[in-house]
Design a binder for these strands. Sequence first.
DNA 1: GCCACTGTTAGCAT
DNA 2: CATGCTAACAGTGG
Length: 273
Amino acid sequence: MPELPEVETIRRSLEPRLVGRRLAGCRLPGRHVLQDCRPDKLRKLRGLRVLGLGRRGKYLIIALEDKTSLVFHLKMTGQFFFGPTGRPLDRHTHFVLRLAGGREDLRFRDVRKFGRLRLVEGEGSEGAALFPGLGPEPLEVGLEDFTRLIRRRAGRLKSLLLNQSFLAGIGNIYADEILFAARLHPRASAAGLSPAKVRRLWLSVRRILGRAVARGGSTIRDYRDAEGRVGLFQLEHKVYGRATQPCYRCRRPIRREVLGGRSTHFCPRCQAL
DNA sequence: GCCACTGTTAGCAT
DNA sequence: CATGCTAACAGTGG
């Protein structure tokens, strides 16, 4: 569920509530969420101040003093929300951050239990070292770099957009919406794409993701930001979830196909191969 | 009750 | 480097 626009919206909703606050500790009712470290390491969180909230692709980062970061991946159904201290947790809440001098805790909840949390310390907790192999931020990469990146790739456009080592943060919904906006077929090959089409793709990546962030992401079912607010970009979806319904551009029915194991929505007319 | 489906990604074989 | 399949898991809808 949470792709770049949703994670960015969550980041923004957490920022005013966390930055400058000191951690009083944490609870870990679901050990499975903790990746690459032992639960007792979490003890060092107590007393650290929150310096800032970051995002890289679909990863959310809580940057702390002492060159320490908490890095979350929400996978399909991860969510954050605030709850009154001491209030019993529901069965899907796997991690709780206690804030000093406050009445509310930050809770990490994930129905499907795919979401993960890492505690990263030292020099590795900053910058590029944190996510080796992750592609550039789609809203930051320029046309020249984008062109160079895509020239090195083969395969189909849909799979390429989903590939996090190409660009970081695009998932199934936005891949489909981007390709419709660019009027490119999901099965079109990345190799040999004309400069005009590369530019259209680059522009569409920026347009779709930019607007989606402005609308607070897409709420299909579960997604909420940390204040419980839904996103609104689903109201502007042109193809995702619209199989058999008429294309807004040409009125032909939107088609759904499975591509690389992912459901893919497109207009066969507007996105001709 | 069963089966298919869901927004992610890692790991594996080919 | 690319593709396809599986698995992790829980809930929803037919």
